Simulated assay, not measured.
Amino acid sequence: MGAGREKILIVDDEENARIGLTKLLAQEGYEVDSVADGCEALEYLRGKRVNLVISDIRMPNMNGLVFLQELSRRHPSIYVIMITAYGEVESYLEAMNLGAFEYLHKPIKLDVLKSVMNKIFERSTHLC
């Protein structure tokens, strides 16, 4: 599936998680970049186009929900998967209301992530 056409941005302040997920998805054939927080991500997206953002919820500077709100406002066509190590019902509901496609818990199971990504990329290829 990762034909290199799909561009993914990982947003996570946890360096090991960010690097690990970036490497895993690159091995699957996706073009992947990563940044440490929402502010960096918004700056990155000024000059680059991505199909999917995978963002942590709990981050310094700009938490993931504030980032998601800004991202949805500035780049409504980008799909977003929110990830968290904390199972908070409130943040799940808020993330979904703000336009997240999916909300996954850490540690991320690669097969589950790939399944969600396949749904996203199938959906985006059926658009005009």
Rank of each mutant, 00 (worst) to 15 (best):
L68C: 06
M59N: 10
A3P: 00
E43D: 14
L45Y: 09
E14Q: 13
S91A: 03
R46L: 15
D33G: 02
N16V: 02
Y79H: 15
I78Q: 13
M62C: 12
K7N: 11
I120E: 12
G99N: 13
E94G: 05
Y44H: 13
G4C: 07
L68P: 12
G47N: 15
E40C: 13
A17P: 03
E88G: 10
G4T: 10
K119Y: 00
I8V: 15
E43L: 06
Y92E: 00
L98W: 08
S77K: 15
S34L: 01
K106A: 09
I120L: 08
L98Y: 04
E14N: 14
G29V: 01
L71G: 12
L65R: 02
Y86C: 04
D37Q: 02
L93A: 00
P60H: 12
F121Q: 10
N51Y: 07
E31L: 15
G29D: 00
S77V: 14
G87V: 06
A85R: 13
N118V: 04
H126T: 03
K106I: 05
E90T: 12
D111K: 12
N16K: 03
R49N: 11
Y30Q: 06
R46G: 14
A41W: 09
M62K: 14
S55M: 04
G4Q: 10
K7Q: 13
D13E: 13
K23W: 02
L127K: 10
V80H: 07
L68R: 08
I8G: 07
N16G: 07
G20K: 02
L25H: 08
Y44G: 01
I108K: 05
E70F: 09
K114I: 14
E88L: 04
I8P: 07
L52R: 08
G64N: 08
K119E: 13
F121N: 09
L68M: 07
V66A: 15
D56N: 12
R123E: 13
M59C: 08
E70A: 15
L113K: 03
V35G: 01
M117T: 12
P76R: 14
I10T: 10
G29C: 04
E43M: 06
A3V: 00
A3G: 10
R46N: 15
R123C: 07
V32E: 01
L24N: 04
I78F: 15
E43I: 08
V32C: 11
E122W: 00
S124K: 02
D111F: 07
M96R: 12
P107I: 05
V50A: 07
E88P: 04
L52Q: 05
N118Q: 14
K114C: 08
Y103D: 04
K119V: 02
L25T: 02
I81W: 12
V116A: 00
F101I: 11
V116H: 10
A26E: 14
A85W: 12
V53G: 05
G38D: 05
F67W: 13
V50Y: 07
C39G: 08
D37N: 15
M82N: 01
F121K: 00
I81K: 10
M82L: 03
L24S: 03
M82A: 07
N97S: 12
D13M: 12
I57P: 01
I108V: 14
G2E: 08
A85P: 08
N51T: 09
V50R: 11
V116Y: 04
V112D: 08
K7I: 09
R5Y: 05
